[in-house]
Computed example of a mutant assay.
Amino acid sequence: MPKSKRNKQVTLSKTTKKGRGHKELIINGIRDAAEKYSSIYVFNFQNMRNSKLKEFREQLQSSSKFFLGSNKVMQVAIGRSSSDEIKPNLHKVSKLLRGDAGMIFTNLSKEEVERLFNEFEGYDFARTGSIATEKVELKEGPLEQFTHDMEPFLRRQGMPVRLNKGVVELVSDFVVCEEGKPLSPEASRILRLMGNMMATFRLNLVCRWGSEDDFELYIDGPGDSDVE
């Protein structure tokens, strides 16, 4: 018996994979920036927040250009060895593009770049799996920061609560999270309700390149000794 065509699934949305053309655009953009700007920095980041990074990029857009994405693509763009680097000693920069990293090409002075990166911090609510930076414990008694209609939701998060004359009440002490331990989905939701921002988004400078003889390491980490 022939298969019915009535139940055939049809995909209405189409997605285009980022292929070779997209990679070439990034490579060409990086190489153009290497000609336009006087210095290059590698940075790494913690607790990435796109909105915070966007604010920082907009602050520097008149003097600098940021690149984040595939480390391998960025390495290809500037050269992975002394034989294929686009400028002398850029292979040293390439070797430091590891993990959560990016590059900034800029005409700002070294002192100004260091000041901007050192001063930049963004705070946000920690996500599930993030490491708690402190112990948060709620004591038995009224929880006046929560409205009465939130009581069912709080119970679903594992909190021992009840309504007492329209007031949410904790019937026993409750530990939301322990310092140094990963946050559960429930802990993450409770901290958000409490307005407790545990995630700090930072950008840390790793190295600076200014010319063939102007290369500086900011972070001495595992594997940095092989930057030759």
Rank of each mutant, 00 (worst) to 15 (best):
P2K: 09
S4Y: 07
K8S: 12
K8G: 03
Q9T: 12
T16P: 00
K17F: 13
K17Y: 12
K18T: 04
G19N: 09
R20G: 06
H22G: 07
E24K: 13
E24W: 06
L25D: 10
I26L: 10
I27N: 06
I27A: 07
I27H: 08
G29I: 02
I30F: 06
K36E: 15
K36T: 15
Y37M: 08
V42Y: 00
V42I: 11
F43N: 10
F43D: 04
F45P: 00
K52Q: 15
K52E: 15
L53K: 12
K54A: 13
K54F: 12
E55Q: 09
E55V: 08
F56C: 01
R57D: 04
R57S: 11
E58C: 09
Q59R: 13
S63Q: 13
S63P: 02
K65I: 01
F66T: 03
F67W: 10
F67M: 08
L68E: 14
G69F: 08
S70V: 00
S70W: 04
M74L: 07
V76E: 15
A77M: 06
A77S: 11
I78C: 04
I78P: 02
I78A: 05
S81H: 08
S81P: 01
S82E: 14
S83L: 13
S83F: 11
S83N: 11
D84H: 06
E85L: 03
I86C: 05
K87H: 09
P88M: 04
L90A: 07
K92F: 07
V93C: 07
S94M: 00
S94G: 00
S94R: 03
S94V: 00
L96R: 14
I104F: 04
I104W: 04
F105L: 11
T106K: 08
E112K: 15
E112L: 10
L116N: 04
F117N: 06
E119P: 03
Y123D: 10
D124S: 15
A132L: 02
A132R: 01
T133Y: 01
T133I: 03
E134D: 09
L138E: 09
K139N: 10
E140N: 08
F146Y: 09
H148T: 12
H148N: 11
D149F: 13
R155S: 14
R156Q: 14
R156L: 12
R156W: 05
M159C: 00
K165Q: 13
G166I: 09
V168R: 03
E169C: 11
L170R: 02
L170H: 05
V171Y: 08
D173R: 05
D173N: 14
F174L: 06
V176G: 05
E179V: 07
L183W: 08
S184W: 03
P185Q: 03
E186D: 11
S188V: 04
R189M: 10
I190V: 14
L191K: 02
L191V: 03
L193F: 09
G195S: 01
N196I: 12
M198V: 02
M198Y: 05
T200F: 05
L203H: 00
L203C: 02
N204C: 09
N204L: 12
L205H: 10
V206K: 06
V206F: 05
G210M: 03
G210D: 05
S211W: 08
S211Q: 09
E212K: 15
D214I: 07
Y218A: 02
I219K: 14
D220T: 12
G221Q: 11
G221E: 12
P222H: 09
P222R: 13
D226E: 15
V227H: 09
V227S: 14
